[in-house]
Amino acid sequence: MTNIIQTEKLTKYYGGVCGIKDLTLSVKEGDFFGFIGPNGAGKSTTIRTLLGLIAPSAGKAEIFGKDICTHRTEILADIGYLPSETAYYSGMRVKDLLTFSARMRGIDCEAEARALCERLMLDPSRKIRELSFGNRKKVGIVCALQHRPRLCVLDEPTSGLDPLMQREFYEILTERNRVGMTVFLSSHVLSEIARYCRHAAVVRAGELLVSDSVEKLGHTGVKRVTLRGFSGEIGLSGAKDITKETDTVRFLYSGRAQELMQALSAMPFDDVTVTDPDLEEVFLHYYTQEEA
């Protein structure tokens, strides 16, 4: 499968401040790709650079095999974008904004827009200034999807949506993904990434830490260890994120399994569980690993 997004040492500086640095990333066509990182990690800078809102300071990026700097307009014709903070012309009605968006694309999306509004329970006759944050988000979703794009770029898409709407939104995305639309989703809600994405990348301070399948990201060699009936100190070099609750101690262990077993055999405890950590813990693992 071909790469739909390909960046090579993509770098963006805001004056002297680094937004992203040497970011090399690839996303395959048809993928459901998660882009993970806390606030200020460089997720939005990456997205804004890919969409041509800001120019890269160095490196290059291609979408659909076309350079983002020289083929911006052609690329945008096949992209649907949902920004993290949706702001529109407040005096307009929803239907007028959707028509304006469709006209700028030179296509008629009326039927698709109507269907999406119905699914998301959005009244197209309402004025945008009268809408809540969540409903404005729905307008953004319809704008991003009404022209049936080949690639959908979503920046923190579910903030402001109630759980029912979040489910409906992901259902729509999954349906579209099934018929070929690539989804590039930036989020710090790790449960969303774990549930819907096939591949994911983790960024920190503008640099890519890891990019792999969500399944493989969960198998980092790190184990979540839970000891019940134990309240002493964990004197183990590979132990991190140690939490204590009355007679239970939990920690993440990254090291040799043999050393873990030897250490455990010397500890008095009632019960032990050793599991793969969830994505949230993996995320913490990458962050603490880099900080160390």
């Binding site: 911006r72 702001a87 529109y88 700028m104 694309r105």
Partner: peptide
């Protein structure tokens, strides 16, 4: 100023 540039400039118009 009104944060609508992101909407406008992500459409396929140069």
């Amino acid at each position: 100023k009104e944060h609508t540039a992101e909407f406008l400039l992500t459409h396929p118009i140069s």
